[in-house]
Amino acid sequence: MKNAPTITKVSIGGLNKLFNHRSRMGIMAILMVNEWADFVSLRDTLKLTDGSLASHLKALVKEKQIEVEKKFVDDKPKTSYRATTEGREAFEAHLAELEEFIRLVDN
């Protein structure tokens, strides 16, 4: 009987489930490189519907990964978002875990 091949163990336990959806990952990526981003810019950049974007933003706000600012500009409402310190740290940890996973797969 032949010896079974050794299997390289791969851990994905460090991935943050909140960021596993491409829309939430996109939102966080934008907010990591921009201090603030408004709703319309996020919607247009990510090519999402208003409802879809709103639900993903709500999930990120609920988990304190992003914060929201509502104000009026030229008598029109403007809603903007930015990553919290907690959100930045969590997203960076998520990306580091993804990078480690990619390194294992590439080898």
Rank of each mutant, 00 (worst) to 15 (best):
V61I: 15
N3T: 10
K9R: 07
E99M: 14
L95T: 10
E35M: 04
K58Q: 11
R24L: 06
A96V: 09
R22N: 11
A59Y: 05
E63G: 00
L57F: 02
T79M: 13
I27M: 06
M25Y: 11
A54D: 04
M28E: 02
H94M: 10
K9V: 09
V73G: 01
S23E: 10
A83Y: 02
G13L: 12
A96Y: 06
N34R: 03
N107R: 14
P77Y: 04
D74A: 15
G51W: 00
L18N: 05
E99Y: 10
T84H: 02
R24G: 05
K47R: 14
A54S: 12
F91Q: 07
F101C: 07
L48R: 06
I102T: 11
K47H: 12
S11K: 06
D106S: 14
H94N: 13
F72Q: 15
T45K: 11
F91L: 07
E89T: 09
N20H: 03
N34E: 05
A29H: 01
S55W: 02
E69Q: 14
L31A: 04
T84Q: 02
H56P: 05
S80W: 04
A29P: 00
E86T: 13
H94S: 09
V33L: 06
M28H: 01
S52T: 14
T79W: 01
L98C: 12
V33A: 07
A83F: 02
T8G: 12
A4T: 13
T6P: 12
K47F: 03
K76V: 13
I66H: 03
L60I: 02
R24T: 06
V68P: 00
P5A: 09
A37C: 13
A4W: 07
L57D: 03
I66Q: 03
L48E: 03
A59N: 12
F101Y: 13
E86S: 11
K78D: 06
D106V: 07
L95V: 15
V10E: 11
D50T: 10
K64E: 14
A90Q: 08
F19L: 02
K47Y: 05
V68R: 14
T49R: 06
W36A: 06
F72P: 00
E100Q: 12
V10A: 07
K71F: 07
D106E: 15
K78S: 11
D74V: 09
L42W: 01
T45V: 13
A54T: 04
K62G: 07
T45D: 07
L104F: 01
